[in-house]
Amino acid sequence: MTSSLHPDDTARPLPRRRFAQLAALGLAAGTGLLGPAPAAAAAPGDGQPYYDRARTLAGDDPVLLALVRAMDPATVIPDLTAPEPIMLFDDLAMLSVGFVHAMALLTDGGIVLIDALRSPEDARDVLVPGLVSLGADPEEIRYVVVTHGHVDHFGGAQYLADHYGARVLMAPQDWDLVAEARPEHAPAQDLEIADGQRLTLGGTTLRLYHTPGHTPGTVSPVFPVRDGAGRHTAMLWGGTQPPGTASELRTYLASVRSFRRRMHEARVDVELSNHPVDHGLQRVEELRGRTGGEHPFVIGRRRTDRFMAVMDLMLRGRLADV
Score class of each variant (00 low, 15 high):
S3D: 05
P7N: 08
D8R: 11
R18L: 15
F19M: 10
F19T: 01
A23S: 12
L25Y: 05
L25P: 00
G26I: 02
G35D: 05
G35N: 02
A41S: 14
G59V: 09
A70N: 04
A70F: 12
M71T: 08
D72T: 12
P73W: 10
V76S: 12
T81V: 14
E84H: 10
I86R: 09
M87A: 14
L88Q: 04
D90H: 05
D90N: 07
D91I: 12
G98F: 00
F99L: 14
A102V: 01
M103F: 15
A104G: 05
L113Q: 01
L117Y: 03
V126R: 05
L127I: 15
L127Q: 03
L131P: 00
A136N: 01
A136Q: 07
I141K: 01
V144G: 10
V145W: 03
T147S: 14
H150V: 12
D152P: 00
F154S: 04
Q158D: 09
Y159W: 15
A161S: 14
D162P: 00
G165N: 09
A166P: 07
L169Y: 12
A171I: 02
P172D: 09
W175I: 01
V178C: 09
R182D: 15
E184F: 07
A194C: 07
G196V: 03
G202R: 01
T204D: 03
T205A: 12
T215G: 03
G217H: 02
S220H: 07
V222Y: 00
R226N: 05
A229N: 10
G230L: 13
T233D: 04
M235V: 09
G238C: 08
P242W: 05
P243W: 02
G244T: 13
T245F: 03
A246V: 10
S247Q: 15
E248N: 08
R250T: 08
Y252K: 11
Y252W: 11
A254D: 13
A254C: 14
S255H: 01
V256I: 15
R257M: 11
R257S: 11
S258E: 13
R260W: 08
R261G: 13
R261F: 11
E265V: 13
E265I: 08
A266Y: 04
A266P: 02
R267Q: 15
V270H: 05
H275M: 11
V277D: 04
D278N: 08
D278H: 00
G280S: 14
L281T: 11
Q282W: 04
V284A: 14
T291I: 10
H295D: 09
F297L: 09
I299D: 03
R302D: 15
R303S: 08
T304E: 06
R306W: 01
M308Q: 11
A309T: 04
A309Y: 01
L319K: 00
V322F: 01
